[in-house]
Amino acid sequence: MEWMQILAVVAGVMMLFVLWPAYKHWSVNSPKAEKGDWQAVLLPLAAVVGLVVLLIMAVR
């Protein structure tokens, strides 16, 4: 295995260690989603997907 791969694995594992406490905190302390909350998130995310598709078409 090359050095780049070893470093990439190290970076990935470190990221998991960093993310775990934040995940535990937010999974316990996040408020419950109310009606319309997810819709309000999915709308802009759909726009992001549309933009990425447009950008791909622009560089092809």
């Binding site: 990935g12 990221m15 998991l16 993310l19 775990w20 934040a22 995940y23 905190h25 937010w26 999974s27 316990v28 302390n29 996040s30 408020p31 419950k32 989603a33 109310e34 909350d37 309000a40 998130v41």
Partner: peptide, 16 residues
């Protein structure tokens, strides 16, 4: 949008 906290960090761990 703080209700997304757990979901976002879980998603990030899956991606990593």
């Amino acid at each position: 949008f703080s209700f997304m906290g757990g979901f976002l960090f879980a998603g990030m761990m899956v991606v990593v």
